[in-house]
Each structure stands twice: as C-alpha cells, then as structure tokens.
Design a protein around this nucleic acid. Structure first.
Lengths: 135, 135
DNA sequence: ATGTATGCAAAACATTTGCACCTGG
DNA sequence: CCAGGTGCAAATGTTTTGCATACAT
C-alpha cells in the first residue's frame, strides 16, 4: 500500500501524488524529468498539470522519497531514492545513466572539504562519456 | 598584446571580444556569470549587448580560453582557463568558489569509467558546503 | 567589398507562482 | 468544513535566435 509511503513523510494522500509515485516506481526508466513524468501520465490517460508534477516532485525530494539530479543541459531528472548515496555516469550519446559508489572518492571529498575549512553539505559528481554500446 | 590571444584561436579581433577578455582577466572575481560580465562592462561605460556577452563567452569556451561551470541554480559562471584541470568547492552561504585538484579522485574516476565500459569525455565535481568565514 | 559580428527585441526553455476552484480527512 | 492541493495561465530567469545594421580584414 504505497499511500502509506506518503503519509509516512507527512504528505496528504492525493490522487496526483499517488500517480506520480506510481510512475516513478513502475516506469522502466529509472531517471525521469518532470516532463517525462507528465507525459507518461497523460499517455496513461491521467489528468494532471505540469505545475503539479513539478510541485509534487519537489515535495518528494524534500521528503527524501526521490533524488534530483542536475545534469548538464539545464533540466533536472529524478530517481526514486534508495537510501544509498551514489554518483552517476552519463552516456553523452544515448543518455543512458549508470550509477556507482566509490568510497575512495567519498573519503577524498570529505578530506578536501575539511582541508579547505568547509563544512560539506552536499556534493555532485557526474562522469560524462560514451558507453560501451555507443562506441 | 591580448588581441593575439584571439587571433591565435581563430577569432576575429573585435571590440566586444577584447572587452570581455579584459574583464575576465582583470576582474578581482575569478568566477563571473554572463550577467556579471555584462554589468561590469556597462559599469565601465562600455556599450555591449547581453546577447553578445553570451555569444562571446560561448566562443571563448569553444576556443578553450575560458571554462564554463554549471553550478546548481541554473546559471553558469565562467573562469579564465589556466590549462590545468581542477574541480570546485562552493560556499552555499557566501557563494565563494574555491578550486582544488585531487589526483586520487581523478584516478578513481578514470578507473570507474573504464570498469563501466565508458570512454570518459568529461566530468564535473562540485562540493557544496559552508566556508570557514560563514560558519 | 563582403563575410562576420553585433545589438535589439522576441523566442525558447525549464521551472515557479498567483489565484480561483476542488478535495481529502 | 476548511486547510491544503490542484489546474491553468501568466510570470520568471537564463540563455538563444532572427534579422537588419555595423565592422574587421
């Protein structure tokens, strides 16, 4: 019962929120832009406003249900949060997105922030390249 | 004679290009948005269009004269290219930007791309935090 | 001269917001 | 019932583009 997920994070259970959550959970694409989610809903015959999709995604992000990636090119994509931090590899040709975790990099980042006198709040790392299938 | 710099990279030497280059080279701020450069020029009494600033900065980027940073929040900032790759630490409070180079991270990134079958073309790493002065 | 570059205003884009109406608890 | 959520359209902020004019070589 996914309506529990919403209640758990303090969000009223509304139809648009359920629908967006459903799309994010069931779509074959793990990474979707607001526009992607909007179109997917229209395609299934659901009525929703694009502004609502943006609002809902932002609320989900604040609630920790989804993570927002700010990739180059100005548009953001969202993924269901799985609790574990990870970074991303993006294929500049087919736009495939792969995930990775590297504890060495994580540790170096923390060390660098400390060295420079920063209290790290966040970090973003994207590796761009051409994936196996596109070479 | 900086007009040589422009000719060297195949750009016609025009007044707007010289002026933008001058601002980037002489401003106390190493990192400037297109708007910053535009305002700085207006402040010195120069006439220039914002669209021209954007066009010139993009040409400079293509020519390798400047590097573009895509920081969170949707606007880009530019810095004079110094030939050496480096990543950035950004203060979320005062927006100070510091630079760093970490060979361990660079190496891990290359290794990860290889592991995943990617031919790395680029990467971007930003560490966000609160700097010493803002804590 | 002549191909490029510029300035302006308008367009494009992703995202946000104001507001009247609708809805969940 | 009523605070909060939604849809729509309009506003936003940044960057790009069309086009007539101006400039570098």
């Amino acid at each position: 019962m996914e309506s529990q997920d919403l209640r758990k994070v303090g969000l009223k259970v509304t139809l648009p929120r359920m629908k967006v959550l459903e799309i994010l959970e069931t779509s074959k694409k793990r990474h979707m832009s607001a526009e992607d989610v909007y179109k997917a809903l229209l395609d299934m015959g659901e009525e929703i406003g694009l502004a609502t999709v943006y609002r809902v995604l932002t609320q989900f992000e604040d609630a920790g249900l989804v993570a927002r990636l700010n990739i180059e090119g100005g548009h953001a994509v969202f993924e269901m949060a799985d609790g574990t931090h990870h970074d991303h590899l993006l294929c500049v040709s087919c736009h495939r997105i792969e995930e990775f975790v590297d504890e060495v990099i994580e540790e170096r980042q923390r060390a660098i922030a400390t060295e420079k006198g920063f209290e790290m709040t966040d970090h973003s790392l994207y590796i761009y390249g051409v994936c196996k299938k596109c070479q």
